[in-house]
Amino acid sequence: MYLPVTVMTNVLTTNRLTLRPWRVEDASAALNVYGNAEVTRWLSPEMDQVPDETAMRLLLQQWIAEAARLRAPAGRWAIEHTADGQVIGGAILLPLPPGQEDLEVGWQLRPDLWGHGYATETTHALAAWAFDHDVYEVFAVVRPGNTRASSTVRNNGMHWVGETRKYFGLDLQVFRLRVADLDAAAPPSAGPPGRD
């Protein structure tokens, strides 16, 4: 069984995290993630390193407007550490181009918080949310060379599907997670999930 996820509208909570809609006032915390070259170098071509708080505020406004048009389970979330309310990253569940038929699960975390299981906890929460909305599989796309992300998605229970240029016109590795995979990947206890 996968990690317990509590859902309030489109706010998802796990043992340690709250995934909630972005707010414009999150700009400073978001810049600590999306203004960091270690994070953005692996993102899609549409996402460059954000240069300053003003640009981050504008990007958050775009994401908020986009999220209002998306149908559940798709969305964008701020990842908040529940204990202190600190925004530590962002997460997505978005239709992949060009056909919008595949749903991508993704996360971005502040580099100083890598390796604490937050990516796994986020992935499992988003996958559970998608599966509760009659989605049968979610995908992660990883650039070749991003060994950290490849390792993380495998630790999340995702299976390598192959390589493609279908998405974003880039060579990408594709990983898939289905309901049975999520059940098998769940930790046996309430302790922190695997490394990410």
Rank of each mutant, 00 (worst) to 15 (best):
R41N: 02
T120Y: 03
T6D: 09
F175L: 01
A78L: 09
T40C: 02
H159L: 11
W160Q: 12
G162V: 10
L113S: 08
D134P: 09
A72G: 08
D134Q: 15
T123Q: 04
S28Y: 02
G85P: 07
V141P: 06
V138H: 09
P4A: 11
F139A: 01
A65R: 14
I88A: 04
S151I: 01
D171S: 14
S189N: 10
V161I: 07
K166V: 04
R69K: 15
R23S: 08
A29M: 05
E101G: 10
P21F: 11
T40Y: 00
V135W: 07
A65S: 13
A91K: 05
A67H: 11
R23V: 04
A185C: 03
D26I: 08
T54N: 09
P45W: 05
Q49K: 13
T9F: 12
M47H: 07
Y136S: 13
D183F: 11
V135H: 06
A185H: 03
P21A: 15
R41Y: 01
Q173D: 14
V7T: 09
D102Q: 13
E101I: 05
P21R: 13
S151F: 09
V50R: 03
L17N: 01
L17D: 02
D181A: 07
R16C: 04
D48E: 10
I88E: 06
W129D: 02
Y2P: 15
L58K: 08
A119Q: 07
R76G: 12
M1D: 08
N36V: 01
E25D: 11
A83C: 11
M8P: 00
T123R: 06
I92T: 15
V50G: 03
L19N: 02
D26A: 12
L172M: 11
L43R: 01
R71F: 08
R71E: 15
F131M: 11
N15S: 11
G106L: 02
H133W: 14
A29T: 00
L93T: 06
A140G: 14
M47N: 14
L17F: 04
V11N: 06
W63V: 05
L182Y: 06
T9W: 12
D102E: 15
L182I: 10
A140D: 14
L19K: 03
P21D: 08
H81A: 02
Q108D: 12
A184H: 15
L182M: 13
L172F: 10
A130R: 12
D181M: 07
T9S: 14
D84P: 03
D171T: 10
D196I: 04
A185L: 05
Y167E: 04
W114M: 12
E80C: 07
A74M: 08
L43S: 01
R57D: 05
T18V: 14
R165S: 04
A67Y: 08
V11M: 07
R57V: 09
A127T: 02
T82M: 04
A186K: 14
A27E: 11
F131K: 08
D196Y: 03
A67M: 04
S189Q: 10
V87Y: 01
A83T: 06
A130L: 03
R16D: 01
S189V: 08
W42V: 00
A78N: 06
A185M: 06
N156A: 14
T147L: 09
G162K: 05
V39S: 02
V105H: 03
F168Q: 01
D181E: 12
V142L: 02
